[in-house]
Write a protein that binds this DNA or RNA. Structure first.
Length: 301
RNA sequence: GGUGCCAUAGCUCAGAUGGUAGAGCAACGGACUGAAAAUCCGUGUGUCCCUAGUUCGAUUCUUGGUGGCACCA
């Protein structure tokens, strides 16, 4: 049975470098679970792995599609499972790395097979924009009183999605949620790259400066016609769109990108904190990581 | 050097005729099953510059400092 080594951590913590080092050592491929690095139009602003890192191993799910064809967490799960089956035919180890906690969990634990309907969602969004969330909440209360009581009723995305599932399936959303973890044909070892908050924030700030230096503004400007697409709702692009609209000065734009990236990193850390058996390492601890991986493989841990 | 004004949260500031204080932003904490770098929720974190007085009680009033700003020299 193959082994999936999952590398997580906040943005700018150094995940890509760790993944590349390990992949070089194990001579194994790297699969990304970064929901923004999928898209070839977004290079600078998503901090895709460097050419050196990409040369160290074969990388998958890195800039292999267009923002015109967004990849959802569920679609990612399915596509990545097919890929892993192929990869494990030739490799005993595959590395999964990326900052999107939901996408990593979708692949590791699996999502319930909930339906999706762009049509229904579109209708609900129209109602929401016209009449607010109240009518949608009321419809959800009728369709699924159990979930109505559990859902974050102030979060439009959650409420709309739940009703979308009810309408598309003809069943209450709460009936379809199993909270069971899927069985996978591979074992999973998880680790996270971390460092003191102050240091992480410093790295984020300087990486944003680098992005600007490398031409993030031009990259964003080239995408302004497609700004409504989901993948472009992304830190670094949204702020520059505001700048192009004259809402922010250049300096304020860059400061805002730094701040929003720090806030994003904090949310990533919150997500990971609930993961009980997650082992944390400094990004420079490659030898310790390799040692730990060997020990866990041989059942020492 | 003189005169005046100011000093309160990380920042910008409000405030109490004396009963140890609150807004915005930031920050911090949390949620998360197909929009997830998205979306949403929660939390004031404080030698009220220092000192000595007056007072039952001073961040508030008074004295003397210190720092900043402005004006005059």
């Amino acid at each position: 049975m193959g082994r999936l080594v999952v590398i997580q951590g906040a943005t700018a913590a150094g995940k890509s470098a760790v993944a590349a080092s390990l992949a070089l050592g194990y001579q194994c491929p790297v699969v990304s679970c970064d929901s923004r690095q999928f898209y070839r139009e977004m290079t600078i602003g998503t901090a895709v792995p460097s050419p050196e890192e990409l040369a160290a191993a074969t990388h998958y799910f890195i800039q292999d599609r267009s923002i015109e064809e967004p990849l959802s967490a569920g679609a990612y799960e399915q596509e990545a499972l097919v890929l892993l089956e192929k990869l494990f035919a030739h490799h005993s180890t595959v590395i999964l790395v990326g900052g999107s906690g939901l996408f990593a969990d979708a692949l590791v634990y699996g999502l319930d097979p909930l339906p999706t309907s762009e049509t229904i969602r579109g209708e609900l969004n129209t109602i929401y924009e016209r009449d607010g969330l109240a009518p949608i909440l009321e419809a959800l209360r009728m369709a699924d009183p159990v979930h109505y009581n559990l859902v974050d009723r102030q979060n439009p995305l959650r409420v709309i999605r739940a009703l979308e599932v009810c309408r598309a399936s003809g069943m209450p959303y709460s009936n379809l949620r199993t909270a069971r973890h899927a069985t996978r044909p591979f074992s999973v070892v998880r680790l996270a790259v971390d460092m003191p908050r102050e240091e992480l924030y410093h790295r984020i700030n300087s990486r944003v400066e680098q992005m600007v230096h490398r031409g993030l503004e031009d990259e964003a400007r080239a995408l302004i016609a497609q700004r409504h697409l989901a993948p472009l709702r992304t830190v670094g692009y949204s702020e520059f769109f505001d700048y192009f609209d004259g809402k922010l000065s250049k300096e304020a734009t860059i400061d805002k990108i730094k701040q929003n990236t720090r806030n994003y990193a904090k949310r990533q850390l919150t997500w990971l904190r609930r993961e009980r058996d997650l082992r944390y390492f400094a990004p420079s601890d490659i030898e310790q990581i390799v040692q730990w991986l060997e020990n866990s493989t041989h059942g020492i841990i």
